[in-house]
Amino acid sequence: MIQDFADWLVYGIFGLSADSSLGTAVNFFFYDTIKILILLFFISILMGIINAYFPIERLRRYLQTHKMYGLQYLLAVIFGAITPFCSCSSIPLFIGFVKGGIPLGVTFAFLITSPLVNEVAVAMFLGSFGLRVTLIYVISGILLGVIGGFVLGRLRLTPYLSDWVKQIQANSSAQADEWEKDHTPFIKRLPTIVHDALGIVRGVLLYILIGIGIGAFMHGFVPEGFFEQYMAKDNWFAVPLSVILAVPMYANAAGIVPVIEVFVAKGIPIGTAIAFMMAVVGLSLPEATLLKKVMTWKLIGIFFGTVAFFIILSGYLFNFIL
């Protein structure tokens, strides 16, 4: 349906030829933009609804009051996935967890997955790669958080926290504040949720347009299989190289996925692309500078190193199985 509209608009109204590079590029631009904006809007609403009923305070309280035998990692990570992530919230969240006496490993699990799996990334993946790749991305984002959090939890990292955070941890109490249940009826919440969803769409619109614009240009003008010669599957260093290249890049998912889509269409293996994508959104230098307020550089290094290691591993895995 959206494809019909894009065809009609670009080939009919604009009068571009379906066989020309310009025609396919413009058509790709309109088709992808419309599809992704619609997806993003509805996924944001869905996540908004889930969030209204499961606020983060509820997770903290649950983690404090229940013995979970390892499942706490999974729960923290799933919460991380559905919480709309704003990088500036990562510090308050971190402190909030520490204050509540939640183990460091579980806190890290949340911190790893929260930026990786979010409404923008899911909408972009769904729009660009379809359901199968999206599921693979989401599930590996969740596993990455669970395994990464577990490993980091084992490493006894408390000495590497900032001094004031150590103090907070020492004074932490499992006696959490009662989680206040909000009894606002659903129908009264909906306008706020829709308003927030529109805010998310508006916030990333520019990045989406730029990303899809670059993607559309490459789609129309870069020959098929162009990248294959540089980043083929049997090139063992392609995965680690793309992960390392990705860390200093701070593009949000909105801008980067349409470009990755074209990279894959032109011959980059999907595992390498997913690894690159995860490193771009999950490991960023601005985030590291924020974390400096609660951790020493050494701990940030260990944190990033561990996550990067598992991202590289999953990149190899996907190239192998897909």
């Binding site: 500036c88 919230s89 308050p92 402190i95 909030g96 204050k99 706020t192």
Partner: peptide, 27 residues
Amino acid sequence: IMEMMNYNIMTTPAVVVDEVVKIKGHV
């Protein structure tokens, strides 16, 4: 951040009226 954490919030932004957190986590 340190001052912010005294209000026991986990999501920002937050609006505090007379030292009571009234709104948090969204605009």
